[in-house]
Each structure stands twice: as C-alpha cells, then as structure tokens.
Design a protein around this nucleic acid. Structure first.
Lengths: 206, 206
DNA sequence: GCCGATACGTACCGTACGGTACGGTACTAT
DNA sequence: ATAGTACCGTACCGTACGGTACGTATCGGC
C-alpha cells in the first residue's frame, strides 16, 4: 500500500513525543534498534497505537523522517544589501550550517536509515529525505547565488551547477566518512568553510 | 570475537565463487537479501561450510568487502613525461574512473552495507571499506599531484587538501544521491570530469 | 579397496521481530 | 449513570533468521 504522501498530516503532541523517542532510538542504535516493541517500551505506548497511528513499520520510518525535517526548518536569513564582503560572510555562514547539519546525530542516523533501505525495495525513504531535507537548503542557497549574480558579484551559467560546486568544495568526502562511522570534528568546520568559500569565489568571482 | 584482520588470507577458488554469489545477492537485494540460507542455496553450498570458512555472518560480510576490494585493483598507469596537457588528461582519466567506480553496483551495495552497519556497533566494516577501497586510489592520485607539483605545474601546501578539493569537485553530492537510490547516468561522467578538472586546475595551477 | 577429509543437503533449535487481539483504564460527552 | 473513545500493557501468532548437528557423497593418499 503506497502511502499518499500527505503533506498536511500534522501529528498530535503525543504522537510527536513518540516520534521523538523513535528518533532517539534510531540515533543510539541504528535501524535495528527501532523495533515496534522497543519503541512501545521506550515511549510508554502500546504497539497497537503505533500501528493505528502509523499504519506500518514503513509508515513509522517515513513519519520519523518527516518529523525531523519539520524540526530543522532554518529561519530565513535576514536579507540585506549584498556586496562582496556580505556575500562571503553569508556563504561562510551557509557552509558552517551545512557542515553542522550533515554532521548531526539525527541527520546521520536518518541518512543511514534511508541508505540502508535504498537497496532492493524502491528508494522511497531516500526520495523523501532528499525532498524534505536537501531541497529546502538548496533552494535557499541558490536564491542567494542568483542574487549575487544579479548584483554582478559572481558569474555562472546555471545556478544548479554553481551550487553543486560549492557543495563539493565544502563537503568533499567528509559526509561519506561520517556515514561510515568516522567521528566529526566540529572544531575544523570554520576553517573548512573559509577555505571552501574562498575557492568558490576564486572560481566564480567576476 | 574480533577477527585478526588477516591480510594474507587468500580464499580458495570455491570460496571465491561463494563470495561472488554473496556479492551478487548483496547487489540485487541489499543486506536483507544476504542470508546464510539464501547464500547457501544460491551458491550450492551448505550453511555449515559457510560458518566453517567465514566463522560468522560478520566474517562473511568482511570477506565480501575484501573480496571486492581485491578485484578492483586498478592497473598502475604508465608513467610518462608530465606536462600541462598530460596532467589534464590524467586527472580527467582519474575523474572518470572515480565516478565509474563510485556509481558501480558493487560499490554502492558495499557502501550501503557498511553505512547501515555503522550505526550502533562500531564502524568495523566502514573502516575496512575505507582502508581497502579509498586508500588505494587516494594514494595513487596524491602521488600524481605530488609529481605535478615537483614539475612546477601546480602548487599546494598539502597534498591531502588538494586531493580533497579535487574529490569534492568531481563527486559533489552525486555519491550520496546514488546511495539514496538515484540512478547514475554514466553519459554525464565525461562532462563532469572535464569541468571538475578545469576548475581544479584553475584553483591550483601555478 | 580402504580411510580420512571435505563439503553438500537437510533438518532442527532458539530467538526476535512484525503484526494482531484482548482485557483493563482513564476521560469525555450526553 | 451510561456509553463511547482513546489508549496502555500484555499476551499471542506466524515467520524468518543465525547458528548447530547429522547423515551422505565425493575424492585424494596409501
């Protein structure tokens, strides 16, 4: 049964609390740790309620992803005059945020979950995660790049390609290393962000 | 029981055939599809033999990773005089190879396996995959970069950082997207490789 | 021709999970 | 007070998996 991807379904406070427990289990023990019985015990609810609310274990997993995505909504940054210095600072801010998000326990746990699920069965959770997570911040940074181009600060043919380049310079292979179990070192994020933005601007500055 | 990471253990032809079946199962159905009974059926061997050879399901998974890593050994490229044109071509060749490897069924399946395992239990498979897979091609390309620097073609402070930049420019977020279930489009690899190398050289050319 | 070793095929065991059913409880509306 | 609702806790069922044990067959060494 393919769930109709209901965007508007808001969960009750009780259900959100349960999803919070589910996310905690997922972060601490991976997919294997998120069992229906385990979640019922951890959240002090009954298995029957779980199946009533989320229909199915897959529905539960999808709900956890949407639950987290809903929490991450970054506040839209205050717009202001855009000169070279402001652009640099906003790009660096974005880079730091991106690294922090990708390195967070919740993000790593959900990405591991979706990736593990992507084999065999269709990539339902993968698409969901991509759509709910990345698209948001992607749109935001592409808008910033577009504004910078309009202001004559940078030049590119296609915003998507410039964004991909920026992303690659910031993240390199760190995300995969973290997913494979390496521990993030947040102290290094600042310098990574600086270097990546400097390189990006050297490539795209007019 | 922590396996002693025996590098030198070569498997018999029969065992390699079994590992090949295991990899096939893994590629087709993900980790869930690689069951002891299923592998015994697919490879026409007994479960008892599996446990005798690999000790344990974890040992089997490790063996599959090492098995694949042993197959991927890229032939060391023929060295020659290194001028700007040769450097560009070798970097583009590397980029194409890298994209092809990362997009291959086997690589994606094994990375998904190791990533799924990385939660909870220690990142044994992750480390193994990192060590057996990446290190090899990393060392090779860093040697090329070092040679290019000695030849005065490019300039950088640290080879590792230059390599990370090159990697990021080539791969961007494609690898993650593939891991999440997006289908690779090999037709685009050439142009991706060209653009990434062009950007890299614009950043590091003397 | 016999023996030991190796490995196949199958049957088996314990466990853990997804999913369902049922009795009991608090709370609300009428 | 009564009926209805939502939920908890627990017990239960079927299944599938990891791991073990056993009987049988193939094959090389003597």
């Amino acid at each position: 049964m393919i769930a109709p991807a209901t965007d508007s379904t808001a969960y009750s406070p009780r259900q959100n609390a349960v999803l919070d427990s589910a996310l905690r289990l997922l972060v601490e023990g991976g997919e294997k740790a998120l069992t229906t019985a385990g979640l019922a015990r951890a959240a002090n609810c009954s298995k029957e309620s779980l199946y009533k609310w989320f229909g199915d274990r897959d529905g539960l997993l999808s709900a956890v992803i949407e639950f987290q995505a809903r929490k991450v909504r970054v506040p839209a940054e205050a717009e202001g005059p855009l000169d070279a210095r402001a652009l640099t600072m906003r790009l660096e801010e974005f880079a730091r945020e991106l690294l922090a998000v990708l390195a967070s326990d919740a993000s790593l746990a959900l990405n591991r979950l979706a990736i593990g699920q992507a084999s065999g069965e269709g990539a339902r959770l993968g698409h969901l995660l991509q759509e709910r997570g990345r698209r948001g911040i992607g749109r935001r940074i592409e808008a910033l790049l577009e504004a910078a181009r309009q202001a004559g600060l940078i030049a590119f043919d296609e915003a998507g390609e410039a964004y991909a380049t920026l992303y690659g310079l910031i993240v390199t292979d760190q995300h995969l290393r973290w997913l494979l179990g390496e521990s993030p070192e947040p102290r290094t994020f600042d310098i990574r962000a600086e270097r990546a933005v400097a390189a990006f601007l050297r490539l795209y500055r007019r």
